[in-house]
Write a protein that binds this DNA or RNA. Structure first.
Lengths: 198, 198
DNA sequence: AATAATAAAAATTTTGAAATTCCTTCCCTT
DNA sequence: AAGGGAAGGAATTTCAAAATTTTTATTATT
C-alpha cells in the first residue's frame, strides 16, 4: 500500500527471513494471508508476486469500489439510525480537519498515512449500516487494493486537489444525511471518477 | 461445499494429517488458501473453523450474489458479442439438459455434482463479458459460499422444484440475449429470491 | 540458426519437531 | 459459592532442513 514493493515484484520468502527476523515459512504464511486481501497474488508452485498495477486494473478496482460503496451507502441510508449519523458526522469531521490542514500545508506528504486512515474510516462508516458483513469485508479488501493501485500514480497533491476532495466528501455526507439515495450515488461516483481514466 | 464438514466445526491440522497423508503444516497451508475463498474462517492464534451457516448469512450471501450477478450481467449485455451469446446458449443448453433429466429421474441426487458444475458454468458465463476480473473473481468466491450455505438446507428436489428452476434459467437466458437489462435483473432476482427468507 | 534435451541452480513445498500460545481443570482465597 | 490464579494439556505457530518442482544455463541435434 505504501509502495515499498514494486508492483509485480517477486516475493521470495527466503529473501525476507533476515530482514524480518523469522523463517521463510513464516513469511510464506504471511504472504498467503496477504493474498486473501488481494495485495499479493499467489500461484501454485510459482510463489508470490505483488499485484500488478495497470490502467485496466485501476479502472476495474475503481469501478468495483463505486459499485460496492453505492450499494452499501444506499442500504445504510435505509437502515442506519442516529448512531450511524453520529458516527458518520464524526468521521467526516475528523477527515475534513486533516484535509483542511493538508490543503494549507506546503508538505502534506507527512500526513498522508493519517489522512489515508481517516479517509477509510469515513467511507467505511458510510456503508457500516448496510447490514451486509460480506459487502463490508469485500469493500475493505477493495479499498486496500485501490490504494495499492493509486499510490504509485504521482498526483498533484496541491491545494486544488484537496479543495476538490473536501467538497466531494461534504457532498457525500450531505446526501447521506438527507437520505437522498440518488444524490449519494452521484456524489460517490463524482468522488471516484477521476480514477477511472488514470 | 458438500457438507462433509459441519458448519462452525473446528479444523485442526493435526487431526487431518493421517486422513490426507501429509503433515499438519501442509493442512494449515491449504486451510489458509480455503479461507481466501471464504469456506473457512481463520483467526490469529485460534486456528480455523468451517464458516458458520445461519439465516442471516444465507440472506447476506444471496443478496450479495444478486448484486454481483445483476451488475455482471448488465455489463455483459453491453459489452458481450457473438462469442458471449454462443457460450451462454451452449452452457444453458447443457444445464437445461441435466435439469430436465433430474426433473424426471426419481433419484436426482446422483447428478447433483454434475448439475452444480453446470449451474455455475451458466451463471459464470452470464457475467463473463462484464470486463471486470475483480467482479468475476468475487462472484466465484460468493458462488462457492452460496452453495456452502444452501447445501445443508434440506430442500424438496422434486419435479416442481426443477420445473421452476428450468423456467427461471430460461428467463435469464431470454432476457440476456434480448439485451433487456431490466428484465434480466428481475429474472436474476426471481431466480434467487427463494433463498432470501430460508 | 533454431529447436530439443540435459544438467545445474534456484525457488517452492513439505516435513517433523521445538517453541509458543491458548484453553481447561483444579486449587486457593475471599 | 464466586472469583482469581496456577498447572497441565492441547492446539497453534515457528523453525531448519529435506524433498520436490520450476527455472536457468549448457550442450547436443536437426
Amino acid at each position: 500500500m505504501t509502495a515499498v514493493f514494486e508492483p509485480g515484484a517477486k516475493m521470495k520468502p527466503a529473501e525476507f527471513q533476515q530482514e524480518y527476523g523469522c523463517s521463510a515459512n513464516t513469511v510464506r504464511d504471511v504472504l498467503l494471508r496477504l493474498s486473501k486481501v488481494g495485495l499479493v497474488e499467489f500461484e501454485m508452485q510459482r510463489g508470490f508476486r505483488v499485484t500488478q498495477t495497470s490502467r485496466e486494473r485501476r479502472r476495474d478496482v475503481t469501478q468495483f469500489r463505486i459499485l460496492l460503496e453505492q450499494e452499501g451507502a444506499t442500504q445504510s441510508m435505509v437502515r442506519g439510525g442516529l448512531p450511524w449519523e453520529a458516527a458518520l458526522t464524526a468521521t467526516h469531521h475528523k477527515l475534513s480537519h486533516i484535509e483542511t490542514k493538508m490543503a494549507r500545508d506546503a508538505q502534506p506528504k507527512t500526513y498522508v498515512g493519517l489522512w489515508s486512515d481517516a479517509e477509510y474510516e469515513f467511507h467505511e462508516t458510510l456503508i457500516s449500516a448496510c447490514g451486509s458483513p460480506l459487502l463490508m469485508e469485500t469493500y475493505a479488501n477493495i479499498y486496500v487494493q485501490f490504494r495499492q493501485q493509486m499510490v504509485s500514480q504521482a498526483r498533484d497533491f496541491g491545494e486544488d486537489y484537496f479543495r476538490a476532495i473536501i467538497a466531494e466528501h461534504q457532498a457525500i455526507l450531505d446526501a447521506a444525511l438527507a437520505r437522498d439515495a440518488e444524490a449519494c450515488r452521484t456524489a460517490i461516483y463524482d468522488h471516484l471518477k477521476r480514477n477511472l481514466q488514470v
